[in-house]
Every structure is written in C-alpha cells, then in structure tokens.
C-alpha cells in the first residue's frame, strides 16, 4: 500500500459502494480458473456441428472447424484468393496478418467496383459521417487534425503548380513578344 493518507471510513462515506468487493470471495473472477457455480447452461458434452455451404477458413493451428461459426461475407475475388493464401500460414507469422490486411484493402476496391457496376455506389461523404463534422466540430477546429498536413501540402502544392504554370505562360508570352519585336525591328 503506497497511499499514506488512506482513510477507509472517509472513502466509504464519500464513494458509493466503496469496498463492497474488497473481499476476494466477492470477486467473481477469483480464483482465475474455477468450475462455474451454477453450471454454464450447456446441456451437451460436445456441441452439434453447424452445417453450411458458405466457405469457411480454418486456422492451421486448429484440428478442425469449430462447432459454430459466422457465415457472413464469404471470401470472393482476388481478396478471397489472398485470404486463402494467408490462412495457409501459422498465426505467429507476420506475413499471415499483413496478407489479410492487404486483402482487406483489395476487398474494399473490389466492393467499390461492384457497387458502381450494380448502380448502388454510396456517398463517401455521408459514409464517413462528415456531416457531423460540420455540425459538431467547433472547439477542435474544422477537420480532423490528421488532415491538416495533407491540406497544407495540398495548398502549397496547388500554389506551386499554379505558379509554375503561370511562369511557363509568361515565358511563352515573353518569347512570342520578343520574336514579334525582333520581326518589327
């Protein structure tokens, strides 16, 4: 105990419920491993196996597919091929996780393409919830802080590009003017 000013009576008076679970027997997670007091609700030794026609990936660190699993968003396209490759690797390998992350990004582009083809492309502005940005961001500035460098670089880039274009035009104009001047002279 490192707090020299500890006063349990004052704390109990000030804080509702202070010390209610001070005794280990009042802490549900003590000891760490224990047989559940009132059972778990399971009335089976081994759960029945879920059947599905959806393709389910299984980690190679398990002997078989688990009795239940989710069936949402079956693998598809190039991202599906990448995920298939990733699931052939052990979970301790970084390449497994990086391949899955890359597959997620490929999946995103595939989905955008599919949305456009099917004519149901969403509005990225509203999907990103940026409406709330305009309504709510008062005290913190107008855009997320992470965008500031991007915006700054963008503005500087645009300015530099417009200067370059302007200078090119001026050069050209001056060259044309000089040629005409020479002709007249």
């Amino acid at each position: 105990m490192t707090n020299p000013d500890f006063d349990s009576i004052a704390l109990a008076r000030r804080i509702p419920g202070w010390g209610a679970d001070l005794r280990p027997e009042n802490r549900p997670g003590v000891p760490k491993e224990k047989v559940p007091d009132n059972g778990t609700g399971a009335h089976w030794e081994q759960p029945e196996q879920q059947i599905t026609s959806v393709r389910i990936f299984k980690t190679i660190e398990r002997p078989e597919v688990t009795p239940v699993f989710g069936t949402t968003c079956a693998p598809k396209g190039l991202s599906g091929v990448m995920r298939t490759a990733a699931y052939r690797l052990g979970e301790g390998k970084i390449s497994r996780w990086v391949t899955l992350l890359l597959a997620d990004r490929v999946d995103m582009f595939e989905s955008i393409l599919l949305d456009v083809i099917k004519g149901r492309a969403g509005n990225p502005f509203s999907e990103m919830g940026l409406g709330t940005e305009f309504r709510n961001r008062r005290e913190k500035g107008f855009m997320p802080r992470g965008w500031y460098p991007v915006i700054a670089v963008g503005i500087v880039g645009l300015f530099a590009a417009s200067r370059a274009v302007h200078q090119q035009k001026e050069k050209k104009r001056f060259a044309t003017f000089s040629d005409e001047f020479k002709k007249v002279a």
């Binding site: 997670g29 491993e33 778990t40 399971a42 990936f57 688990t66 239940v68 699993f69 699931y87």
Partner: peptide, 21 residues
C-alpha cells in the same frame, strides 16, 4: 459453448469452440 476446456473453468472469453479462424 459452455462445454469446452476453457468454459468449464469459467474462462468464457477463451472458448475454443466458436472461432475457426
């Protein structure tokens, strides 16, 4: 699942019968 090695020890967050991936 309530019946695996971990669920029987009250470690429900570590159940081994619900995540094939």
């Amino acid at each position: 699942c309530g019946s695996c090695f971990f669920c029987k020890k009250s470690l429900y967050g570590n159940c081994e019968n619900t995540n094939p991936n």
